[in-house]
Computed example of a mutant assay.
Amino acid sequence: MNALIRAADLSVSHGGADLPVLRHVDFRIDPAEIVTVVGPNGSGKSTLVRALLGHVAAQTGRVDRLPGLRIGYVPQRVHIDRAMPMTVRRFLSLPVRVSDADARAVLERTGVPGLEGRQIGALSGGQFQRVLLARALLNDPQLLVLDEPTQGLDQPGIVAFYQLIEEVRAQTGVAVLMVSHDLLVVMRASDRVVCLNGHVCCEGTPQAVSAAPAYRALFGMDAQGTLALYRHHHDHDHDHVVEAGHHVHGPDCAHEHHHRDHHA
């Protein structure tokens, strides 16, 4: 199977710093796969996404993308003046106008039908996230990239959003790359989880990563809660997913995490 994006020995530094933000990271995402990257603040999650998309340069290693790869992107933060008059329909046509039929179809797919005439500033947080997702789906992407997509949502809204992502993948076959800190729900929506702390600490199916010492060292009690939720609610398995490079460097991850906390 050809990977949509593959990174090998990827290291990235910011501003010429001697200490890389990412160190020797190997990564891949295949068609129709949902991969979630988790890690503490400052672990390089968003930097990895930007490097995979070609927005920042690699210091070492390489990133290969499938030629002509169509990507839909929901960034971590979207700043819109809520006092500015703009309808959802107009927002969906920025920067390229889309047809009424296409706008209607993506809003229906993301669970917010009939919002075309609503002002952007009048949307709830959950509605706005779904409109952002709808906009990302307009070009029929092969890969959907979501960088912390549920910031500002309450727990029911977070769960509903990840359920929607599963439904969109089932309907369209799009692959999904998510960056998330929502440990208690994100596992449910993932085929594979990559735990990052400057390097790949552990990687594999959600159940395998939840049980990995490196993951538990990083997230403590949250990791136990994630595993309990996964066992209780996960109603299908991903045994077919190969746990690529399921390597665990628990002591390194734990040491780096506590070292950063000490200097925070």
Rank of each mutant, 00 (worst) to 15 (best):
Q224P: 00
H240M: 09
Q163W: 03
I29C: 07
A101P: 01
H259M: 14
D64K: 10
T47I: 10
N41W: 09
M178K: 12
Q129L: 03
E243Q: 15
M221N: 10
R50G: 06
P251Q: 09
C201A: 15
T36D: 07
V168T: 06
V21F: 02
A58V: 07
H246V: 13
V242L: 13
L153M: 14
A223W: 03
R104W: 01
S124N: 04
H236S: 14
A214N: 02
M187Q: 14
P20Y: 01
D30F: 06
H232V: 06
V186C: 12
A51S: 12
H24R: 15
S124C: 05
E108Q: 14
A134L: 01
G250L: 01
G220P: 05
Q207F: 04
S46T: 15
L10D: 04
D154W: 07
V74W: 04
R23N: 11
G114V: 03
D182L: 07
C201Q: 11
V168F: 07
M221A: 15
V37L: 11
A214C: 08
V241M: 06
Y162W: 13
S190K: 08
G225C: 05
I158S: 05
I120Q: 00
C202E: 10
D81A: 09
G54P: 02
R65H: 04
V96I: 13
S180K: 05
H55L: 15
R70E: 12
Q119M: 11
H258K: 09
P40R: 12
A160G: 07
D26E: 08
I165E: 04
V200G: 05
E108L: 11
K45T: 12
R169S: 07
L10G: 06
T150D: 07
G54I: 02
R50M: 11
A58C: 09
G152E: 09
R260S: 12
P113I: 02
N139M: 09
F91C: 00
A228E: 14
H238P: 04
R118C: 00
R50K: 15
L218I: 01
R188F: 10
L10V: 04
E243K: 03
V209Q: 03
I80Q: 04
N139I: 08
S180P: 03
A32K: 09
N2M: 06
A103V: 00
H199R: 15
M187P: 08
T172V: 05
L52R: 04
G114H: 04
V96W: 11
P67T: 10
V200K: 02
L196Q: 07
I80K: 00
A254W: 06
A3N: 10
Q151N: 14
H238D: 14
H55F: 13
V168W: 02
V242E: 13
D64P: 00
N197F: 00
V63A: 06
G204D: 08
L94A: 11
L52G: 08
V25P: 02
V194I: 15
H236I: 06
A244S: 13
S124T: 09
